[in-house]
């Protein structure tokens, strides 16, 4: 119950609040940062599962390509978690690298998935600009999101989900 409410609040924050805070022409996808941080704290499986749930539910209100963001966010949580297994996640450089890797993975998976379903997004024309701006934005948000996600993960995630 508490977990569901947190997820809904996160989605509302992403779409209602962060959707107004443009930087360098893009909106932050703060839930990608959350998925990456969960992956770092609790392992790749937990990161992928939490990322998938967040992304899937984010897609539902829009009703377009429902589930594709789930795949993108799951990839972000998975890759960040895999990096966290191989390096000490408390180091800033590791956290930043994991968020950067997750950001690139989520955008690439989304664009590739959309293309597979008949929507050729201009990935090569716009991708570098979108991803570049998102990287800057997400790295600025990481110092805020990382400690909050640790508390959230401790509260929500049963230890059995850890990889």
């Amino acid at each position: 119950m508490g977990g569901g409410l947190v997820v809904l609040v996160l989605i509302a924050l992403q779409m209602g609040a962060f959707g107004r805070l443009r930087l360098l022409g893009v909106y932050p996808e703060v839930l990608v940062v959350v998925a990456c941080c969960v992956g770092l704290h609790r392992g790749p499986v937990a990161g992928a599962v939490f990322g998938f749930i967040l992304g899937f539910l984010m897609d539902v209100p829009g009703g377009h390509l429902v589930g594709l963001s789930g795949l993108g966010y799951a990839a972000a949580g998975l890759f960040a978690g895999l990096l966290g297994l191989r390096a000490f996640p408390e180091r800033w450089s590791v956290t930043a690298s994991a968020v950067a890797l997750g950001t690139v993975a989520s955008q690439a998976v989304y664009a590739a998935g959309a293309s597979a379903f008949g929507f050729s997004l201009p990935f090569w024309e716009a991708g570098p600009r979108i991803i570049g701006a998102l990287l800057v934005y997400h790295l600025l948000l990481t110092p805020l999101v990382y400690p909050l996600t640790r508390q959230l993960a401790d509260w929500l995630m049963p230890r059995g989900l850890e990889a």
Partner: peptide, 14 residues
Amino acid sequence: VIARPLNNWWGVLT
């Protein structure tokens, strides 16, 4: 306007 795009690839508002 109460919500913005869920990602940067589409231009939608709620």
